[in-house]
């Protein structure tokens, strides 16, 4: 952006808007507690973690953050963006933490801090129900599959596909739901996503979709995402403590069963992810 334009933009906004000037170099946990509200950024097209049911935002994240809010003594305020806008929003301090969740990866850990894992994220494929040509993950060789862009599942599926004879063609979508829609419409033969997600979708629409087992790639976990740095460390530690406490007293397993049908055995922290 040129200087002139930026100046015009800044001036225009300064004149036109009443804005809140955010305070810098302040402990995020202290700020959250003082306000009594923790802002959580997420997307609402990632069932069963976050989705809109009859106009209401529901999912595992909503339930888990309600509990985290109780532990911290604060209310939860949701900010929903498309997934590719969520992490930029976190860096722009639009919210205090990101739900998502995101697969815990090495590359992401260089930029962000992850909470204790809340579910397993290992990738599997979903196909059209009754599609006999795909019985195991390797059967996608030479075919076109769908993926959501900017996801760890995309990276994993690509890596898996590259090793197959003839490779696979990957179509990238804005979100997984668009990929599912094209799977139903027959434009792609399968969609690769984390098992909890596709298991939920296939359970909702058994007529249309089926899960292809086993999972492939390496074992990965889902975690919530926070900013790196001293200001945010206390908040992320408090969230971790709440999550580990919920794991110990069984609340986590109950909620996982509610949304996935199964509970996962997850570690208390992931320090060196497999990918």
């Amino acid at each position: 952006m040129n200087k002139r334009g930026f100046l015009a933009l800044t001036l225009g906004l300064g004149l036109a808007l009443a804005t809140s000037v955010s305070a810098y170099a302040e402990d995020t946990l202290a700020k959250v507690k003082a306000a009594g509200v923790m802002k959580v950024g997420t997307e609402t097209e990632f069932a069963p973690f976050d989705f809109i049911d009859a106009g209401k935002h529901v999912g595992l994240n909503v339930d888990l953050f309600d509990e985290i809010g109780k532990e911290l003594g604060v209310k939860i305020e949701w900010v929903t963006l498309p997934w590719d806008g969520v992490l930029p929003g976190l860096e722009a301090k639009k919210f205090d933490v990101v739900a998502g969740p995101a697969t815990i990866t090495k590359a992401r850990m260089e930029h962000y801090v992850f909470s204790a894992p809340i579910a397993e994220a290992t990738v599997a494929l979903m196909k059209r129900a009754g599609d006999k040509s795909i019985m195991k993950p390797e059967d996608i060789a030479g075919k076109t599959i769908g993926e959501a862009k900017a996801t760890a599942q995309l990276t994993q599926t690509k890596a898996f596909g590259d090793k197959l004879p003839g490779g696979v063609k990957v179509k990238e979508y804005v979100g997984f739901n668009e990929a599912y829609a094209d799977l139903a419409a027959g434009r792609v033969v399968a969609v690769g996503n984390s098992l909890p997600n596709i298991a939920f979708v296939a359970k909702q629409r058994p007529q249309t979709f089926a899960v292809v087992l086993p999972t492939f790639g390496v074992k990965t976990y889902f975690g919530y995402i926070g900013r790196k740095g001293a200001d945010d460390a206390s908040l992320m530690n408090a969230i971790d403590a709440a999550l580990v406490k919920m794991k110990k007293d069984g609340r986590m397993a109950t909620l996982q069963k509610k949304w996935f049908g199964v509970s996962f055995d997850t570690p208390d922290a992931v320090t060196t992810p497999n990918i």
Partner: peptide, 11 residues
């Protein structure tokens, strides 16, 4: 939305 917070305008 994303750049203005860098100059202190968190709209």
């Amino acid at each position: 939305y994303n750049l203005l917070p860098a100059i202190g305008l968190n709209v």
